[in-house]
Design a protein around this nucleic acid. Structure first.
Lengths: 240, 240
DNA sequence: TGACATTGTCACGATTTTGTAATAAAGGTG
DNA sequence: CACCTTTATTACAAAATCGTGACAATGTCA
């Protein structure tokens, strides 16, 4: 289990050289970096795994960076992703248009140092909004910052996959996930694993949660699984 | 039994042997496959019936696979079709050019296993899941997100088919469906099942709904069934 | 390097779900 | 009512799905 809450950054730029530079700079700063060479690839990448922040080039063939941002904003799942636009010097008006959709913009050329600073600033101000808050249901507590899980105060030991599974579940209670969706969001969209493998990990997670909480993860027959904190199990009839 | 509606794949390659191999592999994986031996044929095929995904050979006489992809992208109706380019080893630069228009590319030779996996991954991430609101009639509530049904707060246990049947009904109240239509929309249009089987499932669904709601599903004699939330039952006037 | 943890797949058994056929009911009609 | 159609029910066997333990491959760390 990784100690640090590594933040994922997705770089969207059509120039390999620029991506390379950004990737190196950000990885040295401790970020997990993914790259996309077009808006289209970016959208696919985002769907596969939602990044904590995106760096988007303003000028790109086909779909412009701006257009990409707009599309992201329209989708519920991606609307909250902090966006930083990369613009070339002289495109000053981009500021005006760009800031409507982006959270910040950076003018090329820029120093990696400045970039990382801006990026961290954005993350600081945007993360408090929910995602990093601890979640708790019935004594089962998950702390995203420390990446820890405890059951009634008792620390649990989860493998990375188990942790991510539980995090996804606990941040989306009552929602049924298909095995495919789980593969996308927990494993990442670019790995090819048997869907049946999900079952095994669910089993391991349940086991790790212990008898007290294992039944929080319900099986949705024919589909997948669901985290159901609201115990409606035994039909407690309260008169009609 | 196809849990999901069968996905249609269109293979575009000028070599019969390759098409044959791909077809066999994909059909075994449960896809519905069509073939086209040229870009022209492919365009015609696409017009006839839009596939869920296309496998396009990079090197083809006359119009290249890339050009085909571009044309598809230009057309509103076909722009959204996920495309996978097949490239021969060594055409690495295809990645760069190709990814602008294609969603993924696969280098020959490849294992059928990998192909199917990649294909499923693409379909997973490109299939949009619409915003789904819960539906409720007279205490009978269906939640598409959690894939749950409750009757006056009491959770019901439905099999996959029962759930899909009810979902179809509740999202189309007052509409009469023939058995054939139900088979198409609940079972998926490509399975051969006796129409009488629908009756049995209706029976099971009614039973699952319990006495309180079983009569919401009406029999339309000579046609099929209908979900009628507005209880306009004639006959027995409920004594006050 | 060796012990240990993690992960992806299988295979087998226990349950559920599903498709059909057979039989009972109900609806319509002259 | 007698007769023919269309549905409702029931019973069963085949098929699909899930839970689990085992195993091999790989990664991690002291």
């Amino acid at each position: 289990m990784s100690q640090q809450p590594t933040r994922r950054v997705l770089i969207v730029d059509d120039e390999p050289a620029v991506r390379e530079m950004l990737t190196v700079a950000l990885e040295m700063a401790g970020f997990e970096v993914r790259e996309a060479d077009s808006a289209q690839t970016a959208l696919a990448e985002v769907t596969a795994r939602i990044p904590d922040l995106m760096l988007v080039d303003w000028m790109m063939p086909n779909v412009s960076g701006l257009e990409l941002c707009r599309r992201l904003r329209r989708n519920q799942d991606t609307a909250e992703i902090p966006l930083i636009l990369l613009t070339a010097r002289g495109e000053e008006d981009a500021k005006i248009t760009g800031l409507d959709v982006a959270d910040d913009y950076i003018t090329k050329p820029f120093s990696p140092r400045e970039l990382v600073a801006r990026l961290k600033a954005i993350l600081r101000r945007t993360t408090p909004k929910g995602v990093e808050e601890p979640v708790e249901f019935d004594g089962l507590r998950l702390d995203p910052v420390g990446q820890r899980v405890s059951s009634h105060g008792q620390m649990l030991t989860l493998s990375p996959i188990e942790y991510r599974l539980l995090q996804l579940f606990m941040t989306h209670p009552e929602r049924a996930f298909s095995r495919g969706q789980l593969l996308d969001r927990v494993w990442g969209g670019d790995v090819y694993v048997e869907e049946r493998t999900v079952d095994v990990h669910i089993r391991r997670l349940r086991k790790a949660l212990g008898v007290r909480h294992e039944n929080l993860i319900e099986t949705v027959r024919g589909t997948g699984y669901r985290f159901a904190p609201i115990a409606v199990k035994s039909s407690a009839v309260v008169a009609g």
